[in-house]
Amino acid sequence: MATKTGYSKEFIKGLWDENPVLRMLLGLCPALAVTNSAINGFSMGLAVVFTLVLSSTIISLARNIIPKEVRIPTFIIVIATFVTIADKMLAAYVPDISKALGPFVPLIVVNCIILGRQEAFASKNPVGRSIIDALGMSVGFTITLTILGAIRELLGVGTIFAVQIMPQSFEPWMVMVLQPGAFLTLGLMIGISNWLNARRAK
C-alpha cells in the first residue's frame, strides 16, 4: 500500500507541483514554438512522452553500468537515439504533423526536461519509479502544451482541435497564433499558476 501511494505521488508531482513548464521553466522553446494549435502542442507532448519514458527506462536499467565520468555523454546518446526514432516515426506515419513541428522534434534532444530527469531521477532510482516519474513529467508537459495550444488556437482562429467553437461573428485575434501570442499566453499561464499555488499554500 505504501509503495502504491509512493507511485501515485511520483506521477502527480509532474502534473502540478513540479510541472516542467509552469513551475520549473524547462522546455520553454518547444512550449512556445509549436503551440499555435492544440493538435501541434499535443503531438509535441506525445513525442516527449515517448522519448522521456523510454530514455528513463533504459538509463534506469543501466544506471549501475554507466560510469559516473561519462554519464552525460551516454545519456545524450540514448536520448538522441530515441528522439531520432520519434522524429522518423512521425515523418513516416503522420507527415502533416511532422511538417508542422519541423526541426523542433530533433530539438527535443536539448530539451532540459529530458536530460534533467535522467540526471536527477532515472540514474538514481529503480525502473518502476523512473518510468512513473517520466510519465508524470511528460504528461504534465503534454497537458500544459495542449492547453497553451488550445487557448491560442481558440482566440487566434476560433477553433480547438480544428472544431469551430467561437460564433461566426467572432473576429479572430490573429496575434495569438503568431509569436507574440505565444509569449503573452505562456507569461499569463505561469503567472496564474503562481497565483493558484500561493492560494493553495494559504
Binding site: 553500468i65 554507466i66 560510469p67 565520468e69 561519462v70 551516454t74 546518446i77 537515439t81 526514432i85
Partner: peptide, 15 residues
C-alpha cells in the same frame, strides 16, 4: 569508460 561509451554509440547506430 571507453567501452561503455563505444557500446552505447554502436547500439544507437545499429538501432
Amino acid at each position: 569508460l571507453i567501452l561503455v561509451l563505444t557500446a552505447t554509440a554502436v547500439l544507437s547506430g545499429l538501432l
